[in-house]
């Protein structure tokens, strides 16, 4: 990801890639030519976004003790990652589609690409939330873990006496 960031910073720039002031209204910014803004870095941007999602799932796996990283758990996590990547791709491709056609449908108040970004991104982590909450006693903090921790506390208490 650091390399992608470096590549983006060294890529050919386009005018107003980070927006410009609105011609009529002070305080408003506009994005302008969307296709031009993505011309040199669109692919790298999407790669960065995808790798960020991979990193999020890998970090979540790191938070689970090694002995609980069973095949079943890893299947859940890979499925969660696939769901996140699918939503990311739907958003990115819907954006590209709009840029080429200038037409869009709407979903719950937003243009399709933005609906994917807004509702989709929010929902994309729900599988992780479910794995954590519903799998808490299987993967995160089992009865056995609780017993081990209570033993640690008991040892500490006996040392202090």
């Amino acid at each position: 990801m650091a390399l992608i960031l470096l590549t983006i910073c060294l890529s050919e720039t386009v005018p107003d890639a980070e927006g410009k002031p609105h011609a009529l209204f002070a305080g408003l910014q506009i994005g302008g030519d969307g296709a031009a803004r993505l011309e040199h870095i669109g692919f790298f941007g999407f790669m960065f976004q995808s790798l960020l999602m991979v990193q999020i799932v890998l970090l979540s796996i790191l938070g689970v003790a090694e002995r609980y990283r069973t095949n079943k758990f890893l299947i859940y996590m890979v499925s969660a990652l696939a769901f996140m990547l699918l939503i990311g791709w739907q958003m990115f491709s819907a954006h590209l589609e709009y840029l080429s056609s200038n037409e869009t449908g709407y979903f719950l108040g937003f243009p399709n690409a933005t609906a994917w970004a807004t509702y989709g991104t929010w929902l994309s982590a729900i599988p992780l939330v479910l794995i954590y909450s519903l799998g808490f006693r299987k993967f995160i903090y089992t009865k056995e873990d609780e017993k081990k921790f209570n033993e640690l506390l008991a040892e500490k208490a006996s040392r202090q006496e």
């Binding site: 980070e18 927006g19 910014q29 506009i30 994005g31 243009p111």
Partner: peptide
Amino acid sequence: TSIILSDDAETIMPYGAAGIMASL
């Protein structure tokens, strides 16, 4: 959102006026 789209589409598209890398 349609009003915003007709003024400047990028503002109401997924990465907004500030662009893809600011958003990410």
